[in-house]
C-alpha cells in the first residue's frame, strides 16, 4: 500500500502509515477502534480510486439508466462527500466530457442536489435533525417509533428486497439511490419509524454519509421536507430493480408492497395524499 511522497516521521501517538495489505489495515483499525462494527468495504478510499471512478463516468448512460439498480451510476459519492474530489472538479470533468448539453443534464442536476443539500445544512446546522415541516401522512409525529427495529438493521424482515438492501449497506457502505428511497419508505411508512432512526442507521454505514444529503432525503421520503410522502409499490421495485429480489422471496405471496398506489395510501396514511413517485 502506497503512502504519501514525503512521509512524516512517526512520533508517539502517531498512527502508522505503512500496511502490507488491506487485511493488515483492517486488523489495525479493529484494534484501534474495537467498538466500530464490521470489516472494510470493498470500495477503496483515496484519490487513485476516485480517479478510476471518475474516468469511468458516462454522463449520457447515467442520464438514461440511473434509476435502475443496474444502471450506469457513478459511485463518486463517497469521494465527493470526503472532498477527495471537489464538486466543482467533478462538474468540470462532466462538462468536459460531453458534446451536447442534454447528455450531461441529469448528472449535472444530481451534482446540484449535493450543492443544494450542503447549502441547506449551512443554514440549518444541527437543526437538520428536526422535522422541517409537519408530516403529511395524517399520523402524529409521536406515533412513529423512535428506535429502528432490529430485524430491519439485521436484514431479517423476511422481505428479500429489504433484507438484501440492509445486507449491502452493511457489507459495502453504499446503496443505489433508489434502494435508499425504498428502504427509507419501508422504514418510515410501512414500519412507522421516525426518519431520524433510519437516518442514524444509514450514517453509521454509508461511506458517503453526511447529515445534509442523508437527513434531508429521509425527510423528503417522510414528508417533513416535501409536499407528499414518497411511496413505491412492488411493480415499481420490480421495474427498477430488475425483479430479481422477488424471485424466491419468502414473502412473495404476502408482499406488503404488492398493491396499487391508491390501496397503499389507504392502508398506510390517515389522509389520502397523492404520494410522490420517482
Amino acid at each position: 500500500m502506497q503512502s504519501g511522497d514525503s512521509l512524516p516521521e512517526l512520533a508517539p501517538g502517531d498512527l502508522p502509515r505503512q500496511f502490507t495489505s488491506r487485511a493488515a489495515l483492517q486488523q489495525h483499525l479493529q484494534q484501534l477502534f474495537p467498538s466500530a462494527s464490521g470489516a472494510l468495504s470493498p470500495i477503496v478510499g483515496g484519490w487513485a480510486a476516485a480517479q478510476e471512478r471518475l474516468a469511468a463516468v458516462d454522463p449520457g448512460a447515467y442520464g438514461r439508466s440511473r434509476n435502475h439498480l443496474a444502471g450506469a451510476v457513478t459511485h463518486l459519492s463517497p469521494y465527493i462527500r470526503h472532498g477527495v474530489l471537489g464538486l466543482a472538479a467533478v462538474r468540470d470533468a462532466v462538462l468536459g466530457r460531453i458534446t451536447r448539453r442534454p447528455e450531461g443534464e441529469k448528472l449535472v442536476n444530481e451534482l446540484g442536489w449535493r450543492d443544494y443539500w450542503q447549502r441547506l445544512w449551512g443554514q440549518l446546522g444541527d437543526g437538520i435533525w428536526d422535522d422541517q415541516e409537519p408530516l403529511k401522512t395524517g399520523h402524529p409525529a409521536s406515533s412513529y417509533a423512535s428506535e429502528l427495529p432490529a430485524d430491519i438493521a439485521g436484514g431479517s424482515t423476511g422481505l428479500a428486497c429489504m433484507d438484501a438492501f440492509a445486507a449491502e449497506l452493511r457489507a459495502t457502505g453504499w446503496l443505489h439511490n433508489h434502494a435508499r428511497m425504498w428502504l427509507a419508505a419501508y422504514v418510515v411508512h410501512w414500519r412507522r419509524v421516525r426518519w431520524q432512526a433510519g437516518a442514524r442507521w444509514f450514517l453509521q454505514h454509508l461511506l458517503d454519509g453526511d447529515p445534509a444529503s442523508n437527513n434531508l432525503s429521509w425527510q423528503w421520503v417522510a414528508s417533513s421536507f416535501s409536499h407528499k410522502p414518497y411511496l413505491f409499490n412492488r411493480a415499481n421495485l420490480e421495474r427498477f430493480g430488475a425483479g430479481h429480489h422477488c424471485q424466491g422471496c419468502p414473502a412473495a405471496r404476502r408482499c406488503p408492497f404488492d398493491a396499487s398506489y391508491e390501496a397503499l395510501e389507504q392502508r398506510l396514511f390517515a389522509v389520502t395524499p397523492t404520494p410522490r413517485r420517482r
Binding site: G4, D5, S37, W47, L207
Partner: peptide, 29 residues
C-alpha cells in the same frame, strides 16, 4: 464523533485509505 455516531469500521477504513495518499500525520482523540 466516532463513538457518538457508532461509525462502522468501513467508514473509518475509507478515511484511512484516503489519508495514506496524503502527506499527513494521523492521530486520534
Amino acid at each position: 464523533l466516532i463513538a457518538g455516531s457508532a461509525l462502522s469500521l468501513k467508514r473509518l477504513g475509507f478515511l484511512y485509505e484516503c489519508l495514506l495518499e496524503l502527506p499527513v500525520t494521523i492521530r486520534r482523540g
